[in-house]
Simulated assay, not measured.
Amino acid sequence: MSAFFLDWLNLLARWFHLVVGIGWIGASFYFVALDLELRKREKMRPGVYGTAWQVHGGGFYHVEKYLVAPDELPPDLIWYKWEAYLTWMSGFALLIIQYYANARLFLIDPNVLDMTPGEAVVMSVATLIGGWLIYNRLCRSKLINYPAALALCVMALIIGAAYLYTHIFSARGAFLHVGAFVGTIMAFNVFMVIIPNQRKVVASLIAGEQPNPAYGREGKQRSLHNNYLTLPVLLMMLSNHYPFLTGHPQGWLVVALVVVVGGSIRHFLNRTDAHDPFHKYSWTVPVAVVGLGILVYLTAPARTTSEGTVSDAQVMAIVDKHCVMCHAVKPTHAGIDAPPKDIAFTGPPALIRYKPLIMAQAVQSQTMPLGNETGMTEAERQELGEWLNAH
């Protein structure tokens, strides 16, 4: 299949992934906010836990939540599940199209771990499944009675996964896999716990039995985990566009800070929706600000000096060796029909024109060449940076 059709397949899968992902995230945000806004009122129907009055689009809505379930279910009960299922399936399809099919470019970096594409794919699938199994075991241990301790353990699991990925995959592949790792946990929470528990409650009602409230409590716990993981996973999925994140030598630390900042922001929004007194969650503001400040500091580019000793001929020799097989008017790299981002390095003026991008992608990080396929050395990166700084 030509690169043109692969690009279209990638684009359509990404578009679909974005659409269903918005639906899933929107439902998660809405139902958690709704749950926090429920209030007990006079004359509620039997079994109702709380109600909420809402206005949107010119109409008023009155929503009720039952403590376990109503005595009878209507025939038009709406299930929220396909948004989660399709988000994970389309995301995994993108993983196959972008990373598995082009493992040597996007997933493998010989300087990190030299392996075959098959070995890389096996490691990817095994760690995604293993992450869910460990997470699920944690949630069904005695930690379920200690939500804060459980949250810390889940955070440690994610940071551990980030450390592992940065030691087996390329920088881009590692950060993307952290997002896939968390996204798999979130989707499997829906597929393996939340929906099956809801089906058990429905089956009990149909059989005329009293549903077990434990099913609802477990489903709510997993749903809340998904809600808090949403902001970090979104940034992980966008990280490939920002080499100052993926190219950091301590990528696991960057992931840890992203989890802390994202979780703090999500907690601030949730407690605001719950109308809690501000002093009870005011700590989230300094935590998010300080965490973000540390992130900016850690990812700031190192200052370099230039003596102007690298000639035009030397820098073009480096570019010809490592860059122009892709970034040429007519690329020679297999599977690439046109220069990425329409950038062609036709000579020194083109390098100067795209200086910020080259500095970010090939000097201050090792994002380019992809997977360091051509074996670009640190000395060559320094020479390239010296020449660019001199111009």
Rank of each mutant, 00 (worst) to 15 (best):
G131E: 06
G23R: 01
W24V: 02
L18P: 04
G50Y: 05
V63Q: 13
L86D: 12
E42D: 11
E64A: 13
F60C: 10
D76W: 13
V20I: 09
L77Y: 07
G59H: 13
F106V: 07
A103L: 07
L105Q: 06
V112P: 01
Y49R: 13
E119R: 04
G131D: 03
G130A: 14
G118F: 06
L18N: 08
W88A: 03
R41L: 14
A33P: 10
W53N: 08
V20K: 00
D35H: 07
R39Q: 15
Y85C: 05
F92I: 14
L107V: 12
L113G: 00
M123G: 06
I78M: 04
A120R: 01
Y30W: 04
Y99I: 08
G21H: 00
V48C: 12
L128K: 10
F92L: 15
A33D: 04
Q98F: 08
Y100D: 12
P70Q: 02
I134P: 01
E42P: 09
E72N: 10
T127N: 04
I129Y: 15
A101K: 04
F60D: 06
A69Q: 07
I22W: 00
E83A: 14
L38Q: 10
V20M: 05
A93D: 03
L77K: 08
R104H: 02
I129F: 11
K81E: 02
A33N: 04
V55M: 05
G57E: 05
Y99T: 06
F31K: 01
T51S: 09
G50A: 08
Y66W: 04
R137G: 15
N136G: 04
W132N: 00
K65Y: 06
G47V: 03
L67Y: 11
G59W: 15
R39Y: 12
D35R: 09
E42R: 12
P110T: 11
F106K: 10
R41P: 04
F92W: 02
R39C: 13
N136V: 08
V121C: 09
V122T: 11
Y61M: 06
G131F: 06
G130Y: 11
I96E: 11
L113D: 00
L105Y: 02
W82T: 15
N136D: 13
W53E: 08
V19A: 11
V122D: 12
R45C: 14
H62E: 13
V122Q: 12
G47K: 06
D76M: 07
Y49F: 15
S28W: 03
G58I: 01
A120V: 00
L67H: 07
K81M: 10
A103Q: 02
E119V: 11
R39K: 15
L73V: 08
G59S: 14
V55R: 09
R39L: 12
P70C: 03
V48D: 02
G130C: 09
G57Y: 01
I78Q: 09
G57F: 01
V125P: 00
T51I: 15
P117E: 05
K40R: 12
I129S: 00
P110M: 13
